[in-house]
């Protein structure tokens, strides 16, 4: 924690009612074994998930457990997922400015349901498309970073479906849309 009290009111005639007090806390967390496996696979251009034999649900990134069936999942339950799929939902965000925010222009965040065994990635970046042309049912594919530019720095225990550092985002494949009605109940 660093202490940098700053007097907020610049006009010395005014009484000071607020003082900024910046605190700095550093957290260093060991990346858990299953996410390390996931990150290593991303470096090799593969998206790893875990499938629960009881519930049949696919988790990406893998979690080591299925919270629905309450069973522990191990290496045997790892499954390689496809790197293309369908946009099932999205929002376009006008960035709110706060300390550390670097975004200034509206950006899209989409949920992508992967083909094949499945697996849903939330909050994905959509590339090469004006934000107002994004739609549910659009087919997209991963835009991988070149292997030498990939990094595991952004992957951690808390990175909620993140493929950051390996995949730049997802771009339209140009294939015909899948009917949007199919995804009304697939919000994640």
């Amino acid at each position: 924690m660093s202490e940098q009290p700053v007097v907020a009111a610049s006009d010395s005639e005014q009484p000071v009612v607020m003082m900024d007090y910046f605190m700095h806390l550093e957290y260093r967390e060991v990346v858990c074994p299953i996410v390390r496996r996931y990150a290593d696979a991303l470096m090799d251009g593969k998206i790893l998930g875990q499938i629960s034999p009881t519930s049949g649900l696919v988790y990406v990134p893998p979690r080591s457990y299925c919270p629905v069936s309450c069973e522990w999942l191990g290496e045997d339950h790892l499954v390689e997922l496809e790197d293309h799929g369908v946009v099932t939902n999205f929002t376009i965000v006008t960035p709110v400015q706060y300390y550390g925010q670097e975004e200034t222009e509206p950006f899209a965040k989409a949920s992508v349901l992967l083909d094949g065994p499945g697996g849903m990635l939330g909050l994905q970046d959509i590339l090469d498309l004006p934000v107002d042309e994004l739609r549910v049912g659009m087919r997209v594919e991963a835009v991988w970073l070149p292997p030498e530019e990939r990094t595991k720095d952004e992957i951690g225990n808390r990175s909620w479906g993140s493929v950051d550092g390996a995949i730049r985002g997802w771009r339209p494949t140009g294939e015909p849309d899948v009917p949007a009605e199919q995804f009304l109940d697939k919000v994640y």
Binding site: V30, C32, P33, R63, S64, Y65
Partner: peptide, 8 residues
């Protein structure tokens, strides 16, 4: 220091 997450 556990290498597992809190949930795990």
């Amino acid at each position: 220091r556990s290498e597992l997450t809190e949930v795990q």
